[in-house]
Simulated scan of single mutants.
Amino acid sequence: MTMTDPAKSARRARHNAIRAQVADEENEAIEAEVAENAAALDVSLHLRISQSLDAELRRQAAAEHIPTSALVRRLLTQAVHRHDSSSVTLAEVEEIARRVAREELQRS
């Protein structure tokens, strides 16, 4: 079965459109990473992670159409700046210890 010239032309046009779309997406991802790098200090951080974590990070980055390094920077920034209100402060621990000590003295 041979394709006619119009069928070949249509297929070629579809392939060119797909290539152009992929190129646009890659350019957007590169631009986002360049902008992020320009706004941040360029300090390298090297760490060892499990293969499963690497795979999950790469999967999530691909799903978001961003480089894995950009995703990791975002996740680290969010984790560092997140205020966990469920944590007990040192002052609260000291107050609990004082209250327990008072109660123990009252029972004696």
Rank of each mutant, 00 (worst) to 15 (best):
T4A: 04
S44T: 04
K8T: 10
E64A: 15
L75I: 01
V93T: 00
E28T: 03
S87P: 06
D54A: 12
L57N: 00
L53M: 07
A79H: 06
Q60F: 01
E33H: 09
V34T: 07
R82Y: 10
A39L: 15
E26A: 15
N27T: 07
P67R: 07
E103G: 12
A38C: 09
A20Q: 09
A101F: 11
A35H: 00
T77M: 02
A10C: 11
Q51A: 10
L57C: 05
V88A: 07
V34N: 11
N37D: 14
E95I: 10
A70W: 02
E95K: 15
M3N: 07
A40G: 07
Q60T: 00
R107V: 01
A35K: 05
R74W: 04
L75D: 00
T68H: 04
L90T: 00
A40L: 09
S108F: 03
R74I: 03
T4I: 01
E56D: 14
A13Y: 04
V72P: 01
I96H: 11
R58H: 09
Q60K: 03
R14Q: 15
T2A: 07
T68N: 08
D5H: 08
R107Q: 05
H65C: 01
E64R: 12
A97I: 02
E94T: 06
E95R: 15
E95Q: 15
L47K: 03
E56T: 10
T2V: 00
E28I: 00
I96T: 09
S108Q: 05
E33C: 10
L41E: 15
D54K: 12
E25P: 06
A23S: 14
R82N: 09
V34E: 11
T89M: 12
L45G: 04
D84H: 05
A70K: 06
I30R: 14
I18E: 12
A32H: 11
S44L: 08
V43M: 05
S87M: 15
H15V: 01
R102E: 12
A23K: 12
A17W: 00
A63R: 01
A61I: 02
R107G: 04
R82M: 06
H65D: 02
I30H: 14
R59M: 12
E25A: 14
R102C: 10
A79K: 04
M1P: 08
R11H: 08
E64V: 01
D5M: 05
R19V: 02
